[in-house]
Amino acid sequence: MTELALAVPAAPAALAPRRRFRLMRRLVGHRSFQIGLVLLVLLTFAAILAPLTGIDPSSMKVRLRFRPPSQAFPFGTDGFGRDVLTRVLYGARVSLWIGFVVALLSGVIGALIGVLAAQFRSLDALLMRIMDGLMSFPAILLALGITAALGPRMESVIIALTVAYLPAGARLVRASALVVRELDYVLAARIAGASPLRIMLRHILPNSVSPLLVHMTFVFAYSILAEAALSFLGVGVQPPTASWGNIIAEGRDYATEAWWVMLFPGLAISLAALGLNLLGDGLRDVLDPRLKGPG
């Protein structure tokens, strides 16, 4: 390879000014992303710091049943005399955890299925028909069926929601992977003799996941709502473990007398969903090239 030691006389071309971390900067500067992030960070901290209230979320003091919000119990107490603030904070741990894990699992598995279907065309028909099958049931019914079969535990809620939200993610990744696999840099790798697996992992997967990232924030929010719905229907996380859904479910019979039992976990759910949606909007604006401004 001696012939390559020769230098071309042309002076090295000057480079444009550095443009690193453009994405990060756009993201951090994005208004709705900021608000969403702040909301989520606050909720997460609240969940982590739940023990600071110094109250056992399951300790029942029948004497203190249905106390309205006051200095001692800012969110009031429920039918068993438990502190609603403490239960909402502990519930955040369960609800946010379920949302996070479902988003992560359905995202990762969905990405793998999608990219496999796009890269190995022989698998495509099979994988996509399975996804179509799952998609043809309403997500909440599917989840209801799975939790009913597996027993009402947190793990089954997670499995159920993951299965329910998996197909959408897989379809999303497959669609963008089908575009990416025809791009010139993938052809360049094929010309150089790269194996399909290498192309999939090195080029197609990293370049197909940005729509999925946005999707995952929405799945996070849907999962929190779906967990609440499942718990409300009695197949979700079982008492005495607190989740936002089952606090509301327990409060529903006394909704007129003790409105605070349902209001505060309801607010928490709305705040979390709002925060995640804002976060997702911000991510979409920054990641979607079609929405970028000129130059």
């Binding site: 756009r26 500067g29 130059g295």
Partner: peptide
């Protein structure tokens, strides 16, 4: 001028 990440840029 157009708005960019780094403020207003003069295109023309």
């Amino acid at each position: 001028q157009f708005r960019t990440d780094r403020g207003w840029t003069t295109a023309v």
